[in-house]
Amino acid sequence: MSSGQAGGDPLRHAEPVMGTVVSFAVYPGDRDRATVIEALAGACRILHDADAIYSTYQPESPISRLRSGAATLAELPPEVEEVLELCAHMKAATAGWFDPWAMPGGVDPTGLVKGWAAERALRALARTGVSGVMVNAAGDVIVHGRPGEESSWRIGIAHPWRAGALACVIEADAAVATSGSYERGAHLFDPRSGRPAAGVASATVTGPSLAIADALATALAVAGPDGIEFVTGYPGGYDAYVIGDDGAELASDGIRFVPVAALSAEPS
C-alpha cells in the first residue's frame, strides 16, 4: 500500500526477441536503478544469444545447420548439446509425448528453448539481489522473490478460447508454462500420429524450472488429461492444470488457485 520506493512499482521492460516479445518486471528492492538496468541488458543478451543459436527460422543458426546436416553436434556450441540432452531427458520423462525429434523438418527444441532461455534470463536478474523478478516469454512465465510488498505472484491463466479473458488465477513461486492447440496452431504435433494435437484446449504446468515446465506443458497438451500423471510424477514438485476441449477443468493438488472472491476489491 505504500506509495514510496521500497515496495514500489516494478521496472518494466519488453524485449522483442525469439519471434515474440519477452517482458520483464523487476522489483529492485534495495538495488539501485542502474544496477537493475544493467542486469536487464544482460538478461536480454541471454535471450538474443539463445535466439541466435536455436532459431529454426534463421538458416545459418546452429540448430538450423544441425537440422539440415550442414553441421554435426560436435561442431556446434556446447549449449546445443546441453539443450538436446534436456530434450531427450524430457522425451523419456513424458513417455514420448514431448518429442522434438518428431517435428517436421528435423529436431526442433522450440517447445523447450523459450522457457529455457527465459529461465536463464531470470536467474541472471535474480543473482543481482533484486527483491522480485518476473520474466514472461509470451505466456511462459517464471518468477523469483516477491512482487514488491505482495506475498506472492498471481498469474492469470489465459482462457483458451475467449481472447483477453482468464480461465483462472493461480499463485506462483517459480515457473508457469501453458501450452494449447489454440496457441501455436498446427505447431503442436502429436508425435504418435504426426498430426496437430486435439483434445486439450489448454495445459498449464507449474514447478521450479521453466524449461522443464515448458516441455511438460507441451507434452500435456498433446497427451491429454492422462498426462497429469507424468507431470506430478516428475521430481521436484510439478503440478498440472488442464482445460479440455469441452471446457472441463482438471488440476493436481499443488495448483494454488486464487479464489475469485480474493481477486476482487469490492467496490463500495
Partner: peptide, 9 residues
C-alpha cells in the same frame, strides 16, 4: 491484482 498471464501468445 495479477502480476502476469500465462498462456496466450
Amino acid at each position: 491484482q495479477i502480476n502476469g498471464i500465462s498462456g496466450a501468445s
